[in-house]
Design a binder for these strands. Structure first.
Lengths: 208, 208
DNA sequence: CGGTCAATCCCTAAAAAACAGGATATTTAA
DNA sequence: TTAAATATCCTGTTTTTTAGGGATTGACCG
């Protein structure tokens, strides 16, 4: 039986090393390479298509979600398992929407990784137990990065810079009322009632 | 020469495995154990004191900062190197304030880890190159922390919470105009012209 | 003692933002 | 090809903040 070929994408070298170390003595699994960014991952895939990619969700400043989408579009036969830490549950559905077949936490132990790999190569999906548990809690909970539109991001940034609506409108070549609308929408999306809490929350979520 | 003994604290099993794997063939270094939470780390230290602890900053829901403090209080001869990902620069000063001797990013490669270990056992401090780079940017970007009075701090906190002046006044049992004055003074001290930039700046300076 | 600082309060206005309730293209995704 | 999301603009009203000005009290310091 051919071993399952695995490719790792993570911007933390220690994690790559850890996974490789965990899998190196596993007969049915072979790590065929790794990458720390989008470009080098896509470049590798042009040469060779592994059975499974273990893919970190946030690659420094790139998006694992976007990468996942691209990979599945071009190489649908390659399965993707998302890797993440505890505080990124918000992205689970986005990854699955974009074709991920599983979700593993970085504190997963060896058996769990093997199990996940076997599951997805058979065409199934694997969700880390703790993920599904916590998912429920988070759903009810709060602090999720709201997804903003391009314009909303721009406006948020300028508001944080201390510009008034008039100034923002001038800078973006739009009407003051439009800026006002975007701000209203920002307040709704962040579930806050004024600028102060908006900026605080945005800062906490590292969106400005 | 005795090898440097190293203990690892991280809630991500993959990272622990990665570090162990990276260090296992290094003659001068010996990993003597690992923990994934505060309690088991402290428990280990009662039995044995390693030369260095590689300690993740955020342990699920516990605080690496707090753990660092405790460790240094009880075992000052043990050096602590903080481990973190990119987006946690805000904690650097908190770790160093609490006695950490170094700061490593999780994407550090083998050489960097070794270098950091050697540095701190000699009594020095090690800061990841990328960390110091970013620190500099942050340093430049701040016209230093304005010193606030007790009241101003309270008002700032409540403003950041999204309360209006009326609400703040009620909460602090003072007049609305007093709150207003404090806010005026905050704007002056932070050298900003409105709430948005005030909160952004305060957040950047870790004051809220 | 005199001086500074912190904290408290007051006034008047103007500017800005928040709230409410729309409308209309355009672009995107199902 | 619809339906949804996005971006744009409108008319109001109400609330809040900002920008000047000034005043009083107590505490601490040299």
């Amino acid at each position: 039986m051919k071993p399952v070929t695995v490719f790792i994408v993570d911007d933390h070298f220690m994690v790559i090393e850890g996974i490789q170390s965990l899998l190196q003595n596993e007969a049915g699994v072979k790590v065929v390479g790794h990458a720390s960014n989008t470009a080098s991952c896509l470049s590798f895939l042009k040469q060779q298509q592994p059975d499974v990619i273990l893919m970190d969700i946030n690659l420094s400043h790139e998006s694992g979600i976007e990468l996942c989408k691209q990979v599945k579009e071009n190489y649908p036969q390659t399965m993707v398992i998302a890797l993440s830490t505890f505080n990124q549950f918000s992205f689970i559905d986005k990854m699955t929407e974009n074709g991920a077949s599983g979700y593993l936490l970085k504190n997963a132990e060896r058996n769990e990784i093997i199990e996940a790999l076997q599951m997805v190569v058979k065409g199934g999906t694997y969700m880390s137990r703790e993920v599904t548990d916590t998912l429920r809690v988070v759903e009810e909970g709060k602090d999720d990065k709201p997804s903003l539109t391009r314009r909303e991001k721009e406006v948020l940034e300028l508001v944080a810079d201390g510009l008034t609506n008039q100034e923002i409108a001038a800078k973006l070549f739009i009407g003051v009322t439009t800026v006002d609308t975007h701000r209203k929408n920002l307040l709704v999306k962040f579930n806050v009632k004024n600028t102060a809490s908006l900026i605080r929350k945005a800062a906490k979520l590292q969106m400005i």
